[in-house]
């Protein structure tokens, strides 16, 4: 037994090293003095300054944050509605259709989603003249379509574990349906809402493939810019950018984790 446990432990430690070696190497070489990202030649923060002066990247980052925040918010609303419909209403027309469409985007390859949405937009344009141009709007619509699916799955699983007598108790104590929702349901599912929003934000902020399909002139998101730079070769500026993103994510994730602990089951 002990030997088996050691093997499991050994593989796990190797696994964690595997997960973190690339990330740590990214961070280390973001402080490298030389332009090479594989040979150390002294500490420097110059790539961070270079990054901050790179207008193309800064603009792309702003656009990506805007698109991600906007689409995550709409995803949150639509996904929560879908979750309520699926977990609270016993049966309605299109329930199995809705439940299928909610879980499909979870594993749909990006190339298919991207291609199909682009073809939809092209068809729509030839039919009704909208959208006149591909750009931020079409990217936002595309991101909502998969973001809401993730929100719906998370919120749905929280609602399924929800003790319904809590809502009944509030009703029993004189609260009307809308009041019950805001007093009881919403606070209790709020951790799920927060993680759903964060997930939708991250997926949107991270998306390259779908955005590449449905983007248009002047709407280059951060991943599109990074990808075009990487194809030209690696540069420490990208390492600096990666470091900033990783540090931000780590801070947010830790805060979220601590916050979760405060909220009892």
């Amino acid at each position: 037994m002990n030997r088996n446990r050691r093997i499991v432990q050994f593989i796990s430690i190797l696994g964690f090293i595997f997960l973190y070696v690339p990330i740590i190497s990214l961070i280390i070489f973001s402080f490298n003095n030389s332009k090479l990202v594989s040979v150390w030649s002294g500490f420097s923060t110059k790539w961070y300054f270079a990054l901050l002066q790179n207008e193309q990247i800064i603009e792309a980052a702003k656009l990506s944050v805007f698109i991600a925040a906007f689409s995550a918010t709409i995803s949150l609303i639509l996904g929560t509605l879908a979750a309520i419909a699926l977990s609270r209403y016993r049966s309605f027309r299109g329930k199995s259709l809705l439940s299928g469409m909610v879980s499909a985007p979870l594993i749909m390859p990006d190339v298919i989603t991207g291609l199909s949405l682009l073809l939809l937009f092209v068809t729509l344009r030839s039919l009704i003249g909208w959208p006149a141009q591909m750009g931020a709007v079409t990217i936002i619509i595309a991101h909502i379509s998969f973001g809401m699916a993730f929100v719906a799955i998370i919120v749905q699983s929280r609602l399924l574990h929800f003790d319904k007598s809590l809502e009944e108790a509030a009703k029993d104590l004189g609260a009307k349906p809308l009041r019950v929702f805001f007093d009881i349901t919403l606070p209790i599912i709020s951790p799920a809402l927060i993680s759903g929003w964060l997930l939708a934000f991250t997926l949107s902020f991270d998306d390259l493939v779908i955005a590449s399909f449905v983007t248009g002139p002047g709407a280059s998101t951060l991943p599109i810019v990074i990808f075009s730079k990487i194809r030209l070769g690696i540069t420490p500026e990208i390492n600096a950018l990666a470091t900033i993103i990783i540090v931000l994510v780590a801070i947010f994730a830790t805060l979220a984790m601590l916050q979760m602990k405060k909220i009892p089951e």
Partner: peptide
């Protein structure tokens, strides 16, 4: 009503 699970708002 007093609920079986008590249904105290957590």
């Amino acid at each position: 009503m007093m609920f079986q699970s008590y249904a105290l708002f957590p």
